[in-house]
């Protein structure tokens, strides 16, 4: 199991490395660079060349990649050309804000999805299940900006409970984000719950139909004991990976939500940086998202391995 774990970790690191190369190449291909963005669009000749020399943009690509990667490893993500501020500092605040959104959605979404999914499966085809399943499908198919707009319309325009837009500046203390942050969290929770719930529901239904669940009934195990001891532990194993995927999606999916709510998070920063040709920032954010993606999936694999007796005891049968 240990060697498997190490293999997975190594694989994860390689993935992040490959992604960093792809990000770097992708940004290279984009027309323009930091200097064309920083100076006027028409800037030409000496001015542009000087700027490029100052920022080291005239060196070959591999050298710049090497420097960028080495700095990124030591936590130095470079300096933004405009305000001459540390990118790591700018990105840091944004990351914190996005994490606030994401952790809110995760803390509400996962328990809710588990509860609803399990109950819907146990009460399959009854009104509760039908309502929950239809809502979940709706939440998955309606684009996020539409559901966001709907929620804004209901809760801030009609009921006036929470503001529909976030005006807090990105480096404000976390407390100042309340209650504005609640609506974006609600939208993310909605989508996330829908995805996880559907997996949980179908996995529980499948396990309820398994031979061992039937055997438990025929062995005289009371219904709830059967569900808790025989069905749920086996049914929830495959959902660990889906949860991980959803969390990873969450960090990318915030882009839309943050834009709709004007929330100062990582996603919006990425959009802004792309349109401003603020390439070091784009690269930094893309790298962070990729690392989280890989990290979360690694964690899920680890959890599955610990929770599944088949994998846990695999080493016993190896030799």
């Amino acid at each position: 199991m240990l060697s498997m774990l190490m293999r997975r970790s190594a694989l994860g690191l390689i993935t992040v490395w490959l992604v960093s190369i792809i990000i770097f190449i992708g940004v290279e291909i984009l027309p323009g660079d930091a200097c064309t963005a920083f100076l006027e669009r028409e800037a030409q000749g000496l001015l542009l060349e000087n700027c490029r020399r100052d920022l080291g943009l005239d060196r070959p690509a591999w050298m710049r990649y090497g420097e960028w990667a080495a700095n990124a490893l030591s936590g130095n993500l470079g300096v933004s050309p405009d305000g001459q501020r540390q990118i790591s500092e700018l990105v840091g605040y944004r990351l914190r804000n996005t994490l606030l959104l994401a952790s809110g959605a995760i803390l509400c979404g996962i328990p809710l999805a588990l509860f609803l999914g399990i109950v819907a499966a146990l009460w399959r085809d009854r009104p509760f299940d039908i309502i929950v399943s239809t809502t979940a499908i709706a939440a998955m198919t309606i684009p996020e900006f539409v559901s966001a707009t709907l929620l804004i319309l209901i809760f801030s325009v009609w009921l006036g409970w929470v503001p529909g837009i976030v005006l807090t500046s990105s480096n404000a203390p976390l407390a100042e984000f309340f209650p504005e942050v609640l609506l974006p969290i609600a939208v993310l929770t909605l989508v996330m719950t829908a995805h996880i719930l559907r997996t949980v529901r179908s996995s529980v239904i499948e396990t309820l139909a398994s031979d061992y669940a039937q055997m438990a009934i025929l062995k005289g195990v009371p219904y709830w004991q059967m569900v808790i001891r025989h069905v749920l532990p086996n049914a929830l194993l495959p959902t660990i990976n889906v949860v991980a995927l959803t969390i990873a999606w969450l960090l990318g999916g915030v882009v839309v939500i943050e834009t709709v709510f004007n929330y100062p998070g990582l996603g919006r920063m990425m959009i802004d940086s792309i349109s401003d040709r603020d390439l070091p920032v784009t690269q930094a954010i893309a790298l962070i998202i990729a690392s989280v993606y890989v990290g979360v999936n690694l964690l899920a694999d680890l959890l599955t391995m610990v929770a599944n007796p088949r994998l846990r005891t695999a080493h016993l049968r190896g030799k």
């Binding site: 031979d211 061992y212 039937q214 055997m215 025929l218 062995k219 005289g220 025989h230 532990p233 007796p309």
Partner: peptide
């Protein structure tokens, strides 16, 4: 009664035993 005075031995025990216990 089930599993007590009246017990079943299933076809495929491999799949009839809970994998987590």
């Amino acid at each position: 009664v089930r599993g007590g005075r009246l017990a079943l031995i299933p076809q495929n025990s491999g799949q009839s035993l809970a994998p987590n216990l």
